[in-house]
Amino acid sequence: MATKTVTELQGELAALEDPKIREVNERHGDDHGVNLGKLRALAKELKTQHDLARDLWATGDTAARLLALLICRPKLFDRDELDTMLRAAHRPKVHDWLVNYVVKKNPHAEDLRTTWLADPDPIVASAGWALTTERVAKQPAGLDLAGLLDIIEAQLRDAPDRLQWAMNHCLAQIGIEHPDHRARALAIGEHLGVLKDYPTPPNCTSPFAPIWITEMVRRKTAS
């Protein structure tokens, strides 16, 4: 396991900056230019170092925070610490990695899911919906799927971008995983038309829920 200081790692991250990567990332709201493959290689070299991860996070630098999320121990964060971290995770990639790599593996995930789902901040709420989508797919027992569809039907169309994307993913996941709710999920997607015209590269599935649901169900049936 490599032992390095925060200052040394900040220097290494600065050396990995690529202006072209930064230009692309900035179009998506991120403010770093580090190739993520190289960032992961550095994390592999460092292995797990939770105290160092906390120190890297405290710098506020996006690349340092991404590295921190790769070398931390997700289960060691307490509930309030994760809540504070999420509210400070202003960049999309940091937000996504925090939710997917850390919060989902933490014992406080369910408590945070319900708290964030009702938060008035749409970015925080989007994390609640991401955790809800995870439960829809892997642990649906106890979820009110019909109630979730009610909320989605009422709020999806006018939701801010990040929240809309997360809610739409939940809509699609309900339709994919739960045949009893599939017809309604499809009908909501068709009626609202959210992301219907989203530009989708060849060989990729459209995020428009009816297309997404239909294609994923087809694949599951075929496999």
Rank of each mutant, 00 (worst) to 15 (best):
A64Y: 05
P120L: 08
K38G: 00
L66M: 13
G189V: 00
R219V: 11
H28C: 05
P179V: 09
R91Y: 14
T84C: 11
L171G: 01
N168W: 00
P210A: 06
Y198R: 04
A14G: 03
T3P: 00
P179G: 11
V99K: 08
L192M: 04
T114W: 15
E134H: 13
I213Q: 02
T214P: 05
A146N: 04
P122G: 07
E153G: 00
A63D: 07
R184K: 11
R87N: 10
Q49V: 03
S206H: 08
E81Q: 14
A209G: 04
R65T: 10
W97M: 13
L117W: 09
W57G: 05
C72E: 12
P140S: 03
T114Y: 14
N168H: 01
I188T: 04
P160G: 01
A209R: 01
I188M: 04
L70W: 11
A183I: 02
T205F: 09
M216H: 15
Q155H: 04
A187T: 06
Y101K: 14
A137N: 11
G29Y: 06
R79W: 07
L82I: 10
D121R: 09
E26T: 09
G33S: 09
R162E: 06
W129K: 03
W129L: 05
A159G: 01
W57T: 04
D180Y: 04
T84A: 15
L186V: 11
P107W: 08
G37S: 09
R73W: 09
R65I: 12
M85V: 07
D144I: 02
A68V: 11
D30V: 01
C204Y: 14
R79A: 12
